[in-house]
């Protein structure tokens, strides 16, 4: 079985709030010194799903990352975690693609890889938080797609997925090959170990350019980002005090009853 996992390098969504700054001209967040880019945490969940399949029933796991200026220490992490191969799609032309254009490039790369049973990616990239690429990739490749997976099993020619629902989960079966996007409920990526890092040094990395995929220049974005700004917080917190915590509690109770009755 061959599983392809698509992972995006993004600015660390957990950088300290003081480090987050916007470049108003480029309409992008500025990478701060001292906080490295990371793989989108949901894509790491997807990688974990792939590695569990590999542990459970045996699979070759191929990680794919797309972008420009891919930091090797970041994008090689899947190899250290246990993936078998890495495909890097890196080109200045591929910086800041919109979701649909990204899906097109990834689809071309996946066609070039050729053989696969399952394509996994995170439920969304934790920078633009859109959650489009996985689904768009399925449409590009004409495959079925199951989103928000919290458990994935491959049973004969089908992929059986538990899909997160507000009050439980749905069981969905899709024909393979298919695309599955993974939710954080599936679980965190396993801890990287030093032996894992050393083993990764021997694993193959392919670097493909637009010409390798025979792709024309990407189509312009379908959506225009007309504004990007920091939300203004105007709330002023009213501190409810009292002689004792108990007194403050009672005052708070009255406030809650007034503002938000049962």
């Amino acid at each position: 079985m061959q599983v392809i996992v698509c992972l995006k390098q993004i600015l660390d969504p957990e950088m300290p709030s003081g480090s987050f700054h916007l470049d108003p001209n480029r309409k992008r967040a500025v990478p701060p010194p001292g906080t490295p880019p990371v793989l989108s945490p949901f894509d790491e969940n997807a990688l974990e799903a792939a590695l569990r399949l590999k542990d459970g029933q045996g699979a070759k796991v191929i990680a794919v990352s797309l972008g420009d200026k891919l930091a090797r220490a970041v994008v090689k992490k899947p190899l250290s975690a246990g993936a078998d191969e890495l495909v890097l799609l890196e080109d200045p032309e591929w910086e800041d693609l919109d979701h649909f254009a990204s899906a097109r490039v990834l689809a071309a790369a996946i066609r070039k890889i050729g053989e696969f049973d399952l394509i996994l990616t995170g439920r969304q990239a934790a920078d633009w938080d859109a959650g489009l690429v996985g689904s768009a990739l399925a449409e590009e490749l004409g495959l079925g797609c199951v989103t928000l997976a919290r458990k994935i099993e491959v049973v004969k020619d089908k992929v059986r997925v538990e899909r997160v629902a507000p009050d439980g989960y749905e069981v969905v079966e899709a024909l393979r090959p298919c695309v599955v996007t993974v939710d954080s409920e599936l679980g965190e990526l396993r801890q990287i170990t030093m032996p894992g890092i050393f083993a990764a040094k021997k694993k193959p990395i392919q670097e493909w350019k637009p010409a390798d995929l025979k792709l024309a220049s990407p189509a312009p974005a379908r959506c225009e980002l007309v504004d990007l700004y920091l939300p203004k917080r105007e709330t002023v917190c009213e501190i409810i005090g009292g002689e004792s915590p108990e007194e403050a509690a009672l005052k708070l109770a009255d406030k809650l009853l007034e503002k938000c009755p049962a």
Binding site: T235, I240, A248, A253, L257
Partner: peptide, 26 residues
Amino acid sequence: FSFANYGVVGDYRRILPPLIERLKQV
């Protein structure tokens, strides 16, 4: 507190029980 509309400074262990008690009474 910079996000909150209302706040109480203190240990929840001493605030929640009387708060819940009061709500239940009501």
